[in-house]
Amino acid sequence: MTVIILAIVIGLAFGVVLDRIGATNPTVIGKMLNLTNLNLAKTILLAIGTGSLLMFAGQMLGLVDVGHMSVKSAYIGVFIGGLLLGTGWAVAGYCPGTSVVAAGTGRKDAWFFIAGGLLGAAAYMVTYPSWKAWGLLDSIAGGKVTLGTVPGAKYDGLSALPGDVLGIALGLALIALAFALPTRMSPKAPEMLPAE
């Protein structure tokens, strides 16, 4: 029961915040992706950095359960899937999370995105055996790995660097990048965007 209450509280908060940062608006997404307004990119970088900093600092202080980490596997399909997702994200201006929140705000096109998404997920359920047979779901570089080795975690490290210290350092780097990134830039300078 507690877990259901947490789902409602955290889910509500996530929905409200995604809406208030503009992520439910396809125009805001489009202007980030065509590099005319990077305000949302700054928001996302600051959020990832803040989350990382708090989580790893909390782990070092013993306040955050390392067992709550959930690291996904690395395989070639992650990159191919990323390319597909990126394409649809640019076309529609929604990703899975922002589409459901946008539908809640009253955007009708978001419901069409969700309907297409349900069909796309179903198509993957049917074609999954082929991807598996092609070996594109086979782990690479150790599969479920973090960049450093996080003390007490059930995941291996890609390097022997202390994973919690590295996590804090990367968190600070992402926050610094959020501050360094200009809000507006010329649409003709795509090479300026960091490959995050």
Binding site: K72, S73, Y75, G77, V78, F79, I80, G81, G82, L83, L84, L85, G86, T87, G88, W89, V91, A92, G93, Y94, C95, P96, S99, D109, A110, F112, F113, I114, A115, G116, G117, L118, L119, G120, A121, A123, Y124, M125, Y128, W131
Partner: peptide, 17 residues
């Protein structure tokens, strides 16, 4: 476009995990 985008996004997301 929203429907087609949704299809590609979720197919890709599931492939990526």
């Amino acid at each position: 476009a929203a429907f087609a985008g949704g299809f590609i996004v979720l197919y890709g997301a599931r492939l990526a995990g």
